[in-house]
């Protein structure tokens, strides 16, 4: 297990849990990162506020890789603009592309996401596109230079779990990049299931932000993700289509 690393754009990570930082107190970030065992944390870019002197960067522990998202972008052009500003903020060249035209379901625009991926990959970004799980789009993202593919499990913030399970499995089976399940994972058991399927990592935010005890839920996710990964690496036991298979010897019964 120690040699089992997540590799994104040539960077190695031990942890397979990408943590969001939205919708909860900055004061909880350090505990969340620690209890999640996370090495990557997502951020958003917004107009700076002079009145609020607290900055989220002051709360993120040293050595954590920052993954800015392009939330707020409605097309490729806006996503590219936000990504460039994020890089100018001086915290590395990772970017999670997030492009939404739809404000009700917050579904990603796959076509614009491919366009933005190509532009930003050519500019040297480590591009991690959030997408609706579609094999053709995933192949286009590979060709565009993506470093991973991040399919949604269910609508952002819904905590509904693996609604797109069958289609994520196709991506895992066919795409030769880390498939990181992003959005909609609400419970550790769902994260575990995605990892058992062969997902490379899990990204979660709302599941933690809306939990009763955020750091405790972070540790529950950590354990579930590790358990799922171990199960995947070990190879799951087979499922019978019919009938049963005894676990006990079929000889030496106390009868006759």
């Amino acid at each position: 297990m120690n040699n089992d690393k997540l590799i994104i754009g040539g960077h190695e990570f031990q942890s397979r849990f990408i943590l969001g930082s939205g919708k909860y107190s900055m004061k909880l970030i350090e505990a969340a990162v620690k209890d999640a065992g996370a090495e990557i944390i997502t951020l958003a870019v917004r107009r700076a506020n002079t009145k609020e002197h607290e900055n989220i960067l002051d709360y993120i522990p040293e050595g954590i890789t920052l993954l800015p998202n392009t939330s707020g972008a409605r097309n490729a052009e806006e996503a590219v603009r936000i990504a460039r500003l994020a890089r100018e903020l001086g915290c590395g060249n990772f970017v999670k592309i997030e492009i939404m035209r739809d404000s009700k379901y917050l579904l990603p625009d796959n076509v614009e996401t491919v366009k933005a991926t190509e532009i930003l990959a050519n500019e040297g970004f480590v591009v991690m596109p959030y997408m609706y799980p579609d094999l053709n789009t995933a192949r286009d993202l590979v060709n565009a230079g993506a470093a991973s593919v991040m399919p949604l499990a269910s609508p952002i913030g819904s905590n509904k779990g693996l609604a797109t399970k069958e289609f994520i499995q196709i991506l895992i089976d066919e795409i030769d990049l880390p498939i990181i399940v992003d959005a909609g994972i609400g419970r550790p058991s769902q994260a575990c299931e995605a990892m058992e399927m062969g997902a490379a990592a899990i990204m979660a935010n709302t599941a933690l932000a809306t939990a009763g005890d955020l750091p405790m839920m972070a540790s529950a996710f950590k354990q579930a993700i590790e358990a799922g990964r171990r199960a995947y690496l070990s190879g799951l036991g087979r499922v019978l289509t019919r009938g049963a298979s005894a676990s006990d010897p079929l000889t030496g019964f106390l009868r006759d």
Binding site: S21, G22, A44, L57, P68, L85, L89, I156, N205
Partner: peptide, 29 residues
């Protein structure tokens, strides 16, 4: 619409009609 590197803040003079954005990181998913 163009990023201004910090190194040229002192040399970049604002003109009437310019539009400037100042951004920072916030929490997000």
């Amino acid at each position: 619409g163009e990023i201004v590197p910090k190194a040229v803040y002192a040399d970049t003079v604002l003109a009437d009609g310019d539009s400037m954005e100042i951004v920072s990181f916030v929490g997000g998913g």
